[in-house]
Design a protein around this nucleic acid. Sequence first.
DNA 1: TAGATTGTTAATCGATTAACAATC
DNA 2: TAGATTGTTAATCGATTAACAATC
Lengths: 205, 205
Amino acid sequence: MQLPSRTVQRLSKYRRLLLKFQDLKEPHIFSHDLARLLQLNPVQVRRDLMLIGVSGNHRKGYNVNEIIELIGNRIDNEKGQNVALIGVGNLGKVVVRYLKTSDTKMNIIAAFDIDNKKINKCISGINCHNVCDLREMIKQYSISIAVITVPPDYVENIVQILIDAGIKGILNFTSTHIDTPPNIYLIEYDMITSLEEIAYFVNRD
Amino acid sequence: MQLPSRTVQRLSKYRRLLLKFQDLKEPHIFSHDLARLLQLNPVQVRRDLMLIGVSGNHRKGYNVNEIIELIGNRIDNEKGQNVALIGVGNLGKVVVRYLKTSDTKMNIIAAFDIDNKKINKCISGINCHNVCDLREMIKQYSISIAVITVPPDYVENIVQILIDAGIKGILNFTSTHIDTPPNIYLIEYDMITSLEEIAYFVNRD
DNA sequence: TAGATTGTTAATCGATTAACAATC
DNA sequence: TAGATTGTTAATCGATTAACAATC
């Protein structure tokens, strides 16, 4: 049974928070504490946990390790999830460094660029390849997710290559809207739209 | 009457797309063309435009200039919207440069850092100030929105300063969840959560 | 037992879209 | 007129939350 996307987002956040609890040797947590720490409704937390089959204790709350394990069972791929980054500019470098230093099952294993000065260089421990090798590398290393951090003019072209190469999911950091077929799962970070949305509500509250 | 947040997001995207049409001297557009270009439903486009009072022509569609103007009336602040960026690291620099070169009514007018090597330097045409001056600058230049690009350990502290200084909206680029009172409009870009969400659906489609 | 919690259904809320009237 | 479009209500869909039973 497929989980709602909002539930998946919250599960990701529960896990990251609880991994800190694990370090603190706190074996249990109540739904209202988890909710408070993430500014959510406790009912929502209990419902999310119910959906993935976590069962709590009426006295002690939920077992932290059990939550972490069952979230992993749902979200993680056994083989790990290989991610590629396209566009080794300033933003690309920041994203690679961030992902390499975060403890997540998302493995960023290759970067790509068209600039010969960058190709075959190492950035934050991963190699920068020629965009021409994208298709081959995606298949060889079974990369299913791409993070796009190229300049706006290159976006359309890169997306076409990615789709042809069989990529399944895209995180688009450029503010250029991209057109994807419905079988590609797409998330777009559009900072202009986000700032304009914030501006709208700030002026009306 | 307050617009739904999803409508505001789409209006922002309509406007950016239509500004290109304006350059091409295309005076009109049909709802189904606008919808197709942004992968939306034409009914949704017409409904959004109806909500802001745009009226179309049964033969020629909607007037591009009229849409742009009425979106501006709703979203833009007459005085312009002043934005500050906190944390002049690599990510911060990228964001400043991007916002300075985009044509948006969002004016990024100041950057802040705690590093003396950065303070009083100019980045992409704006000055980097000491975080200690945040409160004063926010009031003086009526900055209502902050973009946060500081390292995780500084986030909590910075948010407290921003809230005390009366900031109204925050775009959080760090993957550290922040706790804001309900009168602050917050958008968070959490790339770990986004990648895990993509991974979940990619493995199930 | 009383009180605090989990577990789960049903009601509600918000957003999208189907249906169709009106117009050119 | 026929066909294509806009305009708008009502139905539907998805997500959240209220209500309350069950348990320790």
